[in-house]
């Protein structure tokens, strides 16, 4: 607005001359180019994912560090899904065994374990899992 009040006639003429043909700001080019890169990139990734082998969920539960929490033993677990499909309501059961005899059981359910992804959780035991044989198993899942 203040530009118009400038007594600089030269500038006025310059602006009028350009008025009908709008000049595209450099920033617009940058933003649009970024948008184009993002669209093409995201589309490429999704299509790559789409045509990747669509296998059944392959769930595997692994035990992480064991810590004593309020008098109980917490086993941190990580569930990996190596398959090409996501799994919902993944039930993981941990069993403490000695000489084939079950000492204690604990289980949890993960809402989702996406394809090629992990989910983390924990199981509590009253006995020290380090003193026994700990079996971790992904028992069941649902299709989302």
């Amino acid at each position: 607005m203040s530009d118009r009040n400038l007594p600089d006639k030269h500038r006025d003429a310059h602006q009028k001359g350009r008025a009908p043909e709008k000049k595209t700001p450099a920033l617009e080019w940058i933003a649009s180019a970024l948008g184009l890169i993002l669209v093409v990139g995201v589309l490429g990734l999704i299509l790559y994912d789409a045509f990747d082998e669509d296998t059944l969920p392959q769930l595997k539960a692994q035990a992480g560090p064991i810590t004593l929490v309020n008098g109980r033993y917490l086993v941190q677990i990580i569930v990996r899904n190596h398959g090409g499909s996501s799994a919902a309501a993944v039930n993981v059961q941990g069993t403490l065994k000695r000489d084939g005899k079950t000492i204690e059981r604990s289980s949890t359910t993960f809402d989702y374990v996406p394809a090629h992804s992990n989910a983390k959780g924990g199981l509590f035991f009253t006995q020290d899992p380090r003193a026994y044989e700990l079996q971790l198993e992904a028992k069941a899942y649902m299709e989302p």
């Binding site: 709008k22 933003a31 649009s32 970024l34 948008g35 184009l36």
Partner: peptide, 22 residues
């Protein structure tokens, strides 16, 4: 979100809106 005059500008606006949304 920007004065558009030409088809090319509308396409550029759509792409930049995508970038902003992203």
């Amino acid at each position: 979100f920007e004065d558009t005059f030409r088809w090319r500008d509308d396409l550029m606006d759509a792409l930049s809106a995508y970038a902003v949304g992203f």
